[in-house]
Write a protein that binds this DNA or RNA. Structure first.
Lengths: 340, 340
DNA sequence: TACTACTACTACAACGTTATCGTGTTGAAA
DNA sequence: TTTCAACACGATAACGTTGTAGTAGTAGTA
């Protein structure tokens, strides 16, 4: 097994100095045409590639963006990553992804690991556990070290940094408004417990829509799922005897479980109940009936986040305090779970 | 913005040499108790963390595993990554993930990037395009450089390395056998074009099952989807007038599209047609009716792949030629798309 | 002949570590 | 008083790069 070829080896082999090899390969005019050709030919022949680690160390930057996401399962995160990758690659950056699996500890470990030289900046959507614990020391630490950080989707207000979010309140409001426009009179919502920011915000949107239309808020029509593992059960019993004609769910899964629960009661979608979900993932597209959803434009989110981060990375001046929060508009994709 | 703290800075601050700081932090007995405490306290106070890049350069290894996957969308890959992460973390390794997006070029770029010092070894499932092109230079190159590589799922026979696969033929055979046992007489298959190895193998399993049960093979009952983007259409027209009572699909999506197509024809699942898919993902679980599928045990696959890789990385001796191929058993998860 | 200017290279330092070897100061044995 | 460990620390090299500064050798000019 031969080790990777280095400048030193080339130098020894061709009986020149390391500097000469380095310069020849970078087409320096200091090196004669002859020598340059010789060195380049040799390097090409033996497939020389500079060692990134050495370059990172020397340049004190890695041209790499670290992305930390809570769970890769969600199609939404996939699309965000695509967006990040596209912009990053265009600008000559590389992307590495780490999962926190929604665990606070893993988020901390991964961030510390990446922060120690491997990457130039972070794009992160924080873990559920982190939101719950409200322990942000790892985030502030990274920021204090002068490493730019962009948050997306699940952001933390208290942290001062660039953010890319969707207008959860508005997205939810538009969805519920649509249900109202379709003639729904009794609209329920399946949300999450309030410490999950998106759940809280989407619930707000639901409430606002009802208020604006003069519909009285009925707390019995709000389900805040506690345990994701048991969400199917929670939803089933919540919907067991509700007489409703519209339902808004804050994610795809909840919407699907709701549709199943309705089916078990013999209710027809969308004839008896109209259902709208959140997040335009695979599941929404493939479900039966296909699901009308609020789309989050994940790719755009990723792209904007990457742009923000790279802008920070490339600006030599420290324009501190100049943190932006970009709000991505949501869309509503109408499918077969709502009356047309 | 303060830069990251280095040994040098600590040394200057405490008026000792860099060596002393390094040794103190590593609890060397060479350093007096007093000095050691002082240095450690200082380091802790200012949150010193060694620079990974420098360590990687010095040690010529990064304790990091690079994972290259074609598309993150699939739940299957997610589970594989979980398996990899678990084993890797246990053994003190870090995992970074890159997506090839099924593009040959991106696969090459990502591999070259990671191979130049960032990681110690690869775990890869190759891109569709790579299988099609049969251009494996980037893989052989990495191997020739002495970097261990483990392939999983979509492997390439010609490449000599450790592999972790499922027995696609057997998995498919068991699924089709199940359909036969359920009394299905006319069983169709929705597969992919043959250059995708898993499609080819699963088709073989289908054929074998029929043969073993003395059922004549009918080429009209085999669909080889060409274009994934248009798969829904292809499947719809394929199933338009088929009189069948069993269907085996080589992935979840195809199965779902098939169920939709049947529904459009007014056929009931599983009463009129029994359907079995492949890959036990979210979609199978959530679809309506829920889908009976062949499960691939992704987490186990990832775990085994990581174990193989780490074993190679830690073995100082080069036991070349000792490449293994581990075959993971598939399971059959029965849900509501087959008669009970 | 002496100086300058240019060409084509080499040497060195630095990025942040750690392992190896070197060294000055003590204290005690001879 | 001399010698020699033991102790506690410092200097150096190395990992693979690149940029700056330095230097032979040649050619041209006065």
């Amino acid at each position: 097994m031969r080790r990777k070829l280095t400048l030193k080896q080339i130098a020894r082999e061709l009986d020149v100095s390391i500097s000469t090899v380095s310069k020849a390969l970078r087409d320096s005019i200091e090196i004669s045409e002859d020598t340059r050709q010789k060195i380049k030919a040799f390097a090409k022949l033996y497939n020389y590639k500079p060692n990134n680690i050495a370059l990172s160390l020397k340049n004190r930057k890695s041209k790499t963006i670290g992305v930390i996401i809570p769970e890769i399962v969600h199609h939404f995160f996939t699309t965000v990553i695509s967006g990040i990758e596209q912009v990053a690659n265009e600008q000559g950056y590389h992307v590495i992804i780490c999962m926190s699996n929604n665990s606070f500890d893993k988020e901390v470990i991964n961030m510390e690991l990446l922060a120690n030289g491997s990457i130039d900046g972070f794009i992160i959507s924080v873990a559920k556990e982190t939101q719950q614990k409200k322990d942000y020391h790892h985030l502030t630490e990274v920021i204090n070290q002068g490493m730019p950080l962009v948050m997306f989707d699940r952001v933390i207000e208290e942290i001062n940094c660039d953010k890319v979010i969707i207008d959860d309140v508005l997205g939810a409001k538009k969805a519920v408004q649509r249900l109202i426009d379709l003639g729904c009179k009794k609209i329920a919502i399946i949300s999450t417990v309030d410490y999950i920011s998106v759940g809280k915000l989407r619930t707000q949107g639901y409430i606002q829509a009802l208020e604006e239309n003069g519909i009285a808020l009925d707390q019995n029509l709000i389900l805040r799922v506690e345990d994701f593992e048991k969400s199917e059960e929670e939803i089933r019993s919540f919907l067991a005897e509700k007489e409703i004609d519209g339902l808004f769910a804050v994610n795809e899964h909840f919407a699907i479980y709701a549709i199943k629960a309705f089916a078990e009661r013999g209710l027809k979608i969308p004839e008896d109940v109209s259902v709208i979900g959140f997040t335009n993932g695979e599941i929404s597209k493939l479900s039966n009936p296909s699901l009308t959803t609020v789309s989050q434009h994940g790719a755009e989110m990723g792209a904007r986040a990457a742009s923000l981060l790279i802008k920070k990375l490339e600006s030599t001046q420290e324009q501190e305090e100049a943190f932006q929060t970009i709000i991505i508009e949501t869309g509503l994709i109408e499918r077969n779970s709502t009356k047309n």
